[in-house]
Design a protein around this nucleic acid. Structure first.
Length: 689
DNA sequence: GAAGGCTCAGCCTTATACTC
DNA sequence: GAGTATAAGGCTGAGCCTTC
């Protein structure tokens, strides 16, 4: 079919206000109707349509509406007969054809194409809940409220006992946009709002003994006008209380019982029978004049157009015209009614009657010399101010906390009815929150708390991971620094090695150098390392030498200086062994060497031998470097160089043993010489003889 | 000055113990 | 098992002295 449906919505549609109301121009929620290819038996003319509401998100649903099966059961249709759509025919699901948006779909058969069908997505308000609320209203003992049994409805052979309130007529006074259900109607009826209060007074007075003629005249107009604006009249409200299955019968019964026509078209029977004796007893009114806030107890006859029926038959918000002093009329509020002045005094002394503060002007004394600030008035005032200031910024947590507090209070009271009573009383001061909404808010709050805990745990875990990463990064930085140092050290070593390998003698311009004296001249010039410049002034500058000559000494490196002459002699020695041994004697001397070993390891040949102190590794290094310089000048074979250098320790060890051997031989020679001299001395006398 | 003998530093071998 | 450090002993040759 593919046409838009004029889906008129009631004001208590779940989709707030008019969002559910589809129009052809700009449908906020699209109702797409598609004719189904089916028929109901022989009634082929009856069209069956599949109605789909596009992009209706979960936020549009009642909290408990969408169950686990994704269905909703609170769709209603109001055509000729108002009925509830079966849950099995209503579907709520994600539709792939609508980009996986939520879609509500239900099938419906339009019996008559010329009729107007209204679909309403209503918030459920159960009969039991309504009964509880009515009970709580009864306990408030409102003078303008009376509840009585109106009639019985037939429901499958079982007679219900619906009760009806005369306030149903006033329910229609509320504007359409505020009429969101039976409970709201009742709230509106029983409140002190500008519209219900005078109407209520007029209504009570119209059929009751205290109704003024003017009020009687106004009643019909007000009711009639309100009935035009209101969506649900009295009869519609009745429909909430009785069974729908016997609507016509029950309705007729109610009409008969009420003896009324539809609201605004006929007269109402007296819903609140009042005793004239009760009215007759009201003799005095305690009033406060607006002009000076003075309070007086005056006869009710001084109040213009005021004939109270009972002690609370007045509107404390209404401004009455009261004859004051010498018959001068003045505007005043009625604070209380009593049979006598003594009763006023007694009530004030017993603090049963509170005198509200009328204005913010300076303190004034009332007739009794007392000034009282009614607690309730003060509470309401402060709450209104607080509500006005913080209503917009009220957080979800605060709302939930309040709801939880109310729930706890209600649970401690035990009885459900008491809880409802308490709730209804509180509802006068605070916004009413449905229980389903409360439960949803609590559930949402719990979920958010859980989510917050989870996020906090995740945050803590992430923080620990960051700390570990930072620690690893720090370790990595130190390792990186160490690697860099090692790399630099290795590079330096490589440079030194390359320098050693590339340091060749040296002169190519005829200038004699030190090494040229001891080694054979090399035909080709080679690069020399200029790592250490020759600062000696006694020799011709040789950029190829690696040793520093200064003041007759040669610096071998590591702070080791040797005599230049001895160094020259050393260069003339042949063989690695002699070179190494002589260099060792030059560096350490024989006196040091005879008491040392190369590595400090004790000899194994003698079990009780004590280890001799080792030679300095740095000086050993110098010896090796000198030998390396020498060998590298003779050969470029690294293997040979390595092999020859590996004998440095051995050479030095041999030198040490040779020294010791020499010493021993010397001792032996001395001893032998001594023996020989002794022998000569012993033989001398014989020779002389 | 030449030849021979002696001395001893240097070198090599061997043995031992230890480490890798 | 290979390599190393240490010690001891033997071999060699240069150097010195003596002798011729």
């Amino acid at each position: 079919m593919g046409a838009w449906v004029s889906a008129e919505c009631s004001c208590h549609s779940v989709i707030q206000n008019s969002t559910f109301k589809a129009t052809e121009a700009n449908p906020p929620v699209q109702l797409r109707v598609r004719k189904r290819r089916e028929s109901r038996g022989s009634e082929t003319d009856v069209a069956s349509y599949s109605i789909t509401i596009d992009t209706i998100g979960k936020s549009h649903l009642f909290p408990h509406t969408a169950n686990d099966r994704g269905r909703t059961s609170h769709l209603h249709t109001a055509g000729a007969i108002r009925q509830r759509l079966p849950a099995k025919n209503v579907y709520y699901y994600r539709c792939p054809d609508h980009r996986r948006n939520y879609v509500m779909s239900f099938a419906f058969c339009f019996d008559r194409e010329d009729d107007i069908y209204q679909f309403a997505y209503c918030y459920p308000y159960t009969y039991s809940r309504l009964q509880h609320y009515l009970a709580s209203l009864e306990r408030r003992n409102l003078d303008y409220l009376q509840r009585e049994q109106l009639g019985l409805s037939v429901l499958d052979g079982v007679y219900e006992e619906p009760k009806w309130m005369v306030l149903n007529a006033i329910a229609s006074f509320c504007p359409k946009e505020h009429n969101s259900g039976p409970k709201h109607n009742l709230d509106s009826c029983t409140s002190q709002q500008p519209i219900p209060a005078p109407v209520r007074s007029a209504f009570n007075g119209a059929e009751g003994p205290g109704l003024a003629q003017k009020g009687r005249e106004q009643r019909g107009d007000v009711v009639q006008n309100s009935g035009k604006n209101g969506r649900f009249g009295a009869r519609r409200l009745v429909l909430y209380l009785v069974s729908q299955r016997r609507r016509s019968r029950t309705h007729a019964h109610l009409d008969e019982r009420l003896s009324v026509s539809p609201i605004g078209t006929g007269k109402l029977s007296s819903p609140i029978p009042k005793s004239r004796d009760q009215r007759a007893k009201i003799m005095y009114a305690f009033v406060r004049f607006l002009e000076d806030d003075m309070c007086y107890a005056l006869p009710v006859s001084d109040v213009k157009d005021f004939q109270p029926v009972h002690k609370r038959d007045f509107d404390d918000q209404k401004v009455y015209v009261v004859l004051r002093g010498a018959g001068q009329p003045a505007k005043a509020h009625i604070l209380a009614l009593a049979e006598s002045i003594e009763e006023f005094e007694h009530s004030i002394m017993q603090k049963k009657m509170k005198i509200p503060k009328m204005s913010n002007r300076n303190t004034v004394e009332n007739h009794f010399g007392e000034e009282r600030m009614p607690l309730r008035h003060k509470k309401v005032q402060s709450q209104e101010q607080q509500r006005a200031s913080s209503n917009s910024s009220k957080s979800l947590a605060a709302v939930v906390a309040r709801l939880e507090r109310n729930a706890v209070n209600s649970c401690t009271e035990g009885e459900e009815l008491d809880r409802l009573t308490t709730e209804e009383e509180e509802e006068q001061d605070e916004a009413v929150v449905p229980r389903v909404l409360y439960e949803e808010l609590v559930h949402s709050y719990r979920q958010q708390e859980e989510e917050m805990r989870r996020l906090q745990q995740e945050l803590e875990r992430t923080r620990r991971q960051l700390l570990q990463q930072a620690k690893k990064l720090k370790e990595y930085g130190s390792l990186l620094t160490e690697v860099k140092e090692l790399r630099d050290f290795n590079r330096r070593l490589q440079d030194v090695l390359l320098m050693r390998l590339g340091s060749e003698p040296m002169h190519d311009n005829g200038t004699q150098t030190i090494k040229a004296e001891v080694v054979e001249p090399i035909s080709e010039p080679q690069e020399v390392c200029q790592e250490e410049a020759n600062t000696s002034s006694t020799h011709s500058p040789s950029p190829r030498t690696v040793y520093t000559f200064n003041d007759g000494k040669v610096h071998l490196g590591g702070g080791i200086w040797v005599e230049e002459e001895k160094w020259h002699q050393l260069q003339r020695t042949q063989g690695d062994s002699k070179f190494t041994k002589n260099l060792a004697v030059m560096i350490w001397g024989t006196e040091t060497l005879k008491n040392r070993s190369v590595t400090g390891v004790a000899t194994k040949k003698k079990k009780d031998a004590l280890p001799k102190p080792p030679l300095s590794p740095s000086k050993l290094k110098i010896v090796r470097e000198c030998l390396y310089d020498r060998v590298s000048q003779e050969t470029a074979d690294s293997a040979e160089i390595t092999q020859r250098l590996s004998k440095v320790n051995k050479y030095i060890c041999e030198k040490i043993m040779d020294i010791n051997k020499s010493i021993k031989n010397e001792e032996r020679r001395e001893s032998k010489l001594l023996i020989q001299q002794t022998v000569k001395m012993e033989n001398f006398p014989y020779d002389g003889l």
